[in-house]
Design a protein around this nucleic acid. Structure first.
Length: 805
DNA sequence: AGCACGCCGACT
DNA sequence: GTCGGCGTGCTC
């Protein structure tokens, strides 16, 4: 093949197509689709993906590919196809789709350097440039640009004294370590050792090490540690050619210090057996099915996953397991590593760029057969997929909230169809979408209704906080919660307190005039941070100092409201001074590994109460936790989000599951200001089916998913008139081009009408069937393309928004 | 996204 | 008459 079609790394409408290049002769026959290359593009050099190789090209003045970055394609044939599908499905650029499928380390980094064409030209260049080139012939262009005018530089470029060089680099790199090798046989070694000068004691020591341990190769690091010599002695021996050094590529192993106890398959109970049967037969028959495994917390879903995976691996195939965010649940990693050992790669956001890259390469090189990871692990470059599992299927983090706005569930089903293998979606509180599909028979429903230990779910007590207030209790803890906490302290059992902070942060308000301090750039109230008495905006990062008096009325009664974990902790210490508390929030878990450390500490019973936000809702399993308290169950209910009830139900169910998982029976207390709300009531009764019925009824009457599909179009611009005008035009266009059963809502201001000094308007499309939708949306983007690039107009389209925000 | 090209107003 | 503003269009 002489020519290659390349998708270039320029995310824009006009370059969202392939460009043809000549393949240099030495790479013909070797260069294949899915490889990354560096190509000349205009005056610069950029990265690109080969999507096709061919014998002919219609384009006349072809340039040649500059560099090939991969020895084997980093995108398999299948993933290339998945990329094209993603582009269509989410209306993103092809390059964005490809990049989303690879670890960030493989994304290109661009550098511009100014370089002397010849050393002698140092005398000729302008005086302003001279100081830069005294010691080096290449200088980072950014440094020069700040000091020297572009015109001066341009002149010297024209004169041919200097040139601009565009460099393409990778963000991450392979890690290499120095290996030290013994060049002589052990019999010769004795001889050599006698020839070492007597004053070179350290060198002798090094050789003695090789002799004693009978090793020929060791890492430099280990050698130095074992012998307590400096690398100077090693270098000397290398110079004498007794030793040699070489670099070897190694993987960074984020779990290297951890031991995983090998576990064996547990005996499945009757329900689990019934559930695993159809999955196994789907694996055996090579048939694509989607299973919804609806199992209450503690029903042993994971064991079913593990045994299904075992079958897949036995058949010589590979499996992907998606989990919400496993850096948060080391217990989950342990279970997979424990069962499958080194066959597992782990991919999650807690890893560094380099670590993720290494785990990814293990997959690419077929060194592992199983991936456990967060959302993007769905793109693992396996070629022989036997199963995909999505645990906690209802988690909203499976949807990416930036381009490409894909849902991992959709990708999973698409890939599984390609490989003719099963998808297993597991949850105790499935999304309405999935459960409805299971009811219709699109997915196959597998139910696990009993808990493995036969324990009943912990009893849930709903406390009406309005009542507490009427009885004169103005604290954030109800009388009953304090009672139960005290009881646990006395018995030496543990408690978990959960603060639902979403959509409800500590804002600052004046008690006299009611003025709330807002961000000057966004229409959102600022959040109070105790650290440094700062007020911060969560959307644009704006910071200001907490004022002493109200900016409106100069009153001194300006306070922060709302409840942060810090405040809860302070209050708690006042009420229960003898309790030992661990607080988990962004502040205390900022550092890498801090999260796990705190949990271990809690597990070792070094604290009585674990206090935290969302992050403690998932996957915690401590035998001595017998009380779970939810401080404010309803904060989320009042968000402008059609999934608010569903999310509340899911969260409460999940949190309740943290209590009494082992021998000791558990108890749950839910504090709320709306105790009558069905999602709170039904969560307390663990009645998913009733919740499903009720919520489906409401979704139907308000035309929301799963009855209707949604598409959210958000328009933003610094001027409000412009935003309104564009949104109106878009709504008109949609009305003219979409079918009349489709509902088009808008234009309306977005729930947050201004972010970073940009006004935001939106339009929601609700439809059941709309063949024209993608085409129509493409046309809208095309139409506004110029204004988007030149006039700072932004249009974002989300084809299955999780919320209305 | 960059970058060159080109057309217009403001200045030596 | 030249310099520099940024609107327009191209990149294999």
């Amino acid at each position: 093949m002489k020519y290659a079609s390349v998708i270039v790394d320029v995310p824009s409408m006009q370059t969202d197509r392939s460009f043809d290049y000549k393949i240099p002769e030495e790479w013909q026959g070797f260069l294949t689709p899915g490889m990354r290359v560096v190509v000349p593009f205009g005056p610069r050099k950029i990265q690109g993906f080969v999507v096709e190789t061919k014998e002919h090209s219609d384009f006349k003045r072809l340039k040649s590919i500059t560099e090939c970055l991969d020895l084997t394609p980093c995108l398999t044939k299948e993933l290339l196809q998945v990329g094209h599908w993603l582009t269509e499905k989410t209306l993103c650029f092809k390059i964005s789709a490809f990049q989303a499928m690879l670890p960030a380390a493989m994304k290109a980094k661009y550098e511009k350097v100014l370089s002397l064409t010849q050393d002698e030209h140092l005398l000729n260049i302008s005086d302003q440039l001279k100081p830069f080139f005294q010691k080096q012939s290449q200088v980072d262009f950014k440094e020069i640009e700040q000091v020297v005018s572009l015109k001066t530089i341009q002149k010297d470029i024209e004169n041919g004294y200097v040139e601009l060089i565009y460099k393409v680099k990778q963000k991450g790199n392979k890690k290499r370590i120095k290996m030290i090798n013994l060049n002589v046989s052990f019999s010769e070694l004795e001889d050599k050792m006698n020839n070492i000068p007597v004053n070179a004691k350290k060198q002798l020591e090094v050789l003695q090490y090789f002799k004693d341990n009978e090793v020929k190769t060791i890492t430099l690091q280990d050698l130095l540690a074992a012998t307590n010599v400096s690398d100077a002695s090693v270098k000397a021996l290398i110079a004498k050619e007794i030793l040699s050094e070489k670099y070897q590529e190694v993987y960074r192993d984020p779990y290297q210090d951890r031991e995983f106890k090998k576990t064996n398959a547990l005996l499945l109970n009757h329900e689990q057996q019934q559930a695993i049967k159809p999955i196994l037969s789907s694996i055996e028959e090579n048939e694509h099915h989607v299973f919804l495994m609806y199992g209450v917390t503690g029903s042993g879903k994971t064991e079913v996953y593990l045994q299904s995976i075992e079958e897949v691996l036995k058949n010589g195939k590979e499996a992907i397991v998606l989990v919400p965010e496993i850096s948060l649940t080391p217990q989950m990693v342990n279970r997979f590593k424990g069962r499958f050992g080194s066959k597992v790669a782990v991919l999650h956001s807690g890893l560094s760029t380099g670590e993720k890259y290494d785990e990814w390469r293990k997959i690419q090189r077929k060194e592992v057969q199983l991936v456990v990871g967060a959302r993007s692990a769905i793109f693992a470059p396996f070629e022989n997929l036997g199963m995909i599992i999505i645990d906690e299927e209802h988690e909203s983090s499976y949807k990416q909230e930036e381009n490409p706005r894909y849902h991992a569930r959709d990708v999973a089903i698409y890939r599984a169809r390609n490989h003719r293998c099963p998808v297993v979606l597991g949850s105790a509180t499935p999304t309405l979408e999935s459960f409805a599909r299971a009811q219709k028979g699109v997915y196959k429903l597998l139910s696990l209704k009993e808990r493995v230990n036969k324990r009943s779910m912990p009893a849930v007590d709903i406390v009406d906080m309005r009542e507490e207030l009427r009885n004169g209790n103005r604290s954030m803890f109800s009388t009953s919660l304090i009672e139960k906490l005290t009881e646990r302290l006395e018995k030496g059992e543990q408690s978990v307190l959960f603060l639902n902070k979403r959509g409800y942060s500590s804002f600052v308000m004046c008690r006299d005039c009611g003025f709330v301090i807002q961000c000057p750039h966004c229409d959102i109230s600022l959040t109070y941070h105790r650290f440094g008495q700062q007020l911060k905006c969560h959307y644009c990062g704006h910071e200001e100092h907490m004022p002493n008096v109200c900016p409106e009325c100069q009153s001194e009664h300006i306070r922060f409201f709302g409840t942060g974990t810090q405040r809860v902790e302070e209050e708690l210490v006042k009420v229960l001074p003898e309790s030992r508390i661990i607080r988990m929030d962004v502040d205390t878990t900022g550092k890498k590994g801090a999260h796990e450390k705190l949990l271990t500490k809690f597990g070792n019973k070094e604290a009585d109460i674990l206090l935290g936000t969302q992050m403690i809702a998932k996957g915690l399993d401590f035998p001595d936790v017998t009380l779970v308290g939810v401080l404010t169950a309803d904060t989320m209910l009042h968000l402008p989000d059609f999934r608010a009830s569903e999310k509340t139900f899911q969260l409460l169910t999940q949190v309740s599951g943290r209590a009494g998982r082992h021998e000791l029976p558990g108890e749950v207390i839910i504090q709320t200001y709306t105790p009558e709300h069905y999602s709170i009531q039904l969560a307390s009764q663990y009645d998913y089916d009733a919740f499903y019925e009720q919520e489906m009824f409401l979704r139907k009457s308000h035309a929301y998913p799963p009855y209707y599909y949604l598409t959210l179009i958000t328009i933003s611009h610094p001027e409000i008139t412009k935003v309104v005008a564009v949104t109106e035009k878009i709504v008109q266009y949609l009305n003219r081009n979409l079918s009349n059963t489709t509902k088009i809502l808008g234009p309306v201001a977005s729930p947050i009408p201004r972010i970073k000094d940009r006004y935001r308007y939106q339009c929601m499309v609700k439809y059941k069937r709309e063949n024209n939708l993608h085409e129509t949306l493409r046309k809208i983007i095309d139409h506004f393309q110029q204004e988007m690039s030149s006039d700072d107009l932004a249009i974002t389209i989300d084809l299955s928004p999780n919320t209305m925000m």
